[in-house]
Structures are given as C-alpha cells and as structure tokens.
C-alpha cells in the first residue's frame, strides 16, 4: 500500500450505514443492482433497468431476476402483458433504437419500482434475522452485501434464481424433440416452487402452433412465440414462486473484504 498509515487505520468501506439485519442490507444492495448498477457476476448478467437492455432475452432475464429480488412485487409496476412485444413498453426497454422518450420511460419505471422494492423490504424485514456481535467477535458486519452472491442472503433464493434463469435459457433456444420438451416441463417444478400452472404440458401439446414453435429451433418467428409463451405462461408462476419461497439465512461472503485476506 502506498498510502501512509494513520492512527487506528480504517480501510472498511465508509459506504452506507448498515442495519443489524445483514440480509436486509443484502436485499437492498440486490435491488440497487437491478435498478442502477447491474450485476455481471450473475449468469446471465443483470443489466440495470436504468440503462436499458441490449436484447429481448436480457430484458426477459432481468424481469425474472427482478421477480426474485422483489419477492414478486415487480409485477405491481411491470405486469407480464407489459413485457409482450408491441405492448408499447418493451420497445422502450430495449436499447436497439434508443431515444429520449425511452430514456424517460425507463427513468420513470425505476422511480416507480422504488415502491415495489420498499414493499418487498417491509415484507422481508420480519424474516431477516438480527445479528449482533458475539463473544468470538463474529459480527453482522462480517456479511458484505457487495460480495454476497445469495440473493436475500438465502441460498434457496440463489437456487431459485439460477433454476429460473436456466429454464429461460433452455426455452429460448427451443427443444430438440417432444421428450426434451417434456423433461423441461417436468423440471419446472423446482424453479416455480411447485406453482407450475395445472395441466401445462397438456395445454402445450393441445395447441399445435405452440408445440411447433417450441420444437422449432431455427425460425425467428418461433422464437418470438416462445418469448410470448415465456412471458404469458412461465413468468407468472416464477413470480408466484418468488412470493412463496422461504429459505434459511446463510452468507457466503467472508465479508471483511478489507480485513485479512483468506489465503
């Protein structure tokens, strides 16, 4: 380090004040990332709403991530039909042809989402355990919201998040055959926390155009249909899953990013 050492050195980041409930801080940071900062660590990466999205998939993926990180309340501001092509809103979210109007719409959305985030914060408050310093010196401040990779500091939510993201990635590229499709529907139970629409598979195979679009890995038009299917059918159950999932608290951030580095 090149800086001189003042008395009683502090290298802890003098960022925002922290609560004694680290999971709340983590939630708060997660929501910041959704709206302003983005999160490159996540796969696929979260692009911040304020900056717009490079393509429709990233928009869809953001919507899904926002569902998890607002306990499903993103729906109060952006309903699934808003995410449909030609709805008037989706086009504003994409950066493909960015104009001042789009920028304005996105800024308004970010502002409106603040309330939805607060609602999630209030609901989550009860579930976030309080931690204070114990005899061993383990403290709540050992959790570092910047490093924490579990949304809401709950591994269950990370699993939910990655399960949902993976399901969307699979859906995006379409399916090889009916068996692959069947397996995908089967696997939806976990990422929807068991809230999958009843008779989903029957409904799919009962609609020849939909079935064809899901099994067509080539045409652009089929991709659009799959997108509509994702927004209209899959996303609502994903949002419900985020509302209903509970999970135990556990941190994976060593926290003290500026304490001793763990060799």
């Amino acid at each position: 380090m090149t800086e001189p050492v003042p008395e009683g050195v502090t290298t802890e980041s003098e960022s925002q004040p922290r609560t004694t409930r680290p999971a709340l801080d983590v939630l708060d940071r997660d929501q910041d990332r959704l709206l302003y900062d983005g999160d490159l660590r996540r796969e696929p990466p979260i692009q911040p709403l304020g900056d717009g999205f490079d393509n429709a998939f990233l928009a869809l993926s953001w919507y899904q991530a926002a569902g998890v990180r607002t306990l499903g309340h993103v729906e109060r501001v952006i309903e699934p039909p808003d995410m449909m092509p030609m709805s008037g809103l989706l086009e504003k979210l994409l950066t493909v042809d960015d104009d001042r109007q789009s920028v304005y719409v996105r800024r308004r959305l970010v502002e409106q989402l603040d309330d939805a985030c607060d609602l999630a914060y209030r609901q989550f408050r009860e579930r976030a355990g309080e931690r204070v310093e114990d005899a061993e010196g383990e403290t709540w401040s050992d959790v570092d919201p910047d490093e924490e990779s579990n949304p809401l500091m709950r591994p269950a939510f990370r699993q939910l998040d990655s399960g949902q993201a993976a399901a969307l990635i699979d859906l995006w590229s379409g399916f090889e055959d009916r068996e692959a499709l069947g397996r995908w529907v089967r696997k939806l139970s976990a990422p929807t926390n068991g809230e999958k629409p009843e008779g989903l598979l029957d409904e799919i195979v009962g609609s020849p155009p939909l079935l064809e679009a899901l099994l067509n890995q080539r045409d652009q038009e089929a991709k659009v249909t799959r997108y509509r299917f994702a927004v209209a059918v899959v996303m609502p159950s994903f949002l419900t899953a985020a509302r209903t999932l509970n999970g135990g608290e556990r941190t994976d951030s060593s926290g003290a990013t500026h304490g001793a580095w763990n060799s």
Partner: peptide, 28 residues
C-alpha cells in the same frame, strides 16, 4: 505500526505481510 497489527492481525492465524511501502493483511 503496532496499531495496524492489533487491528488486522488480531488473532492467531492472521498476519500482515509487508515489503517496503506495501502491506496486506492475510489469514489462513
């Protein structure tokens, strides 16, 4: 200095490694 050691090498299994002007706290 000692106050830095006391703050970062505050228990067994931690230490501060340094060379000329640079230093970093580590643990194992």
């Amino acid at each position: 200095n000692m106050s830095y050691i006391n703050k970062f090498a505050d228990r067994k299994g931690r230490a501060v490694i340094w060379r000329n002007d640079n230093f970093a706290p580590i643990q194992w």
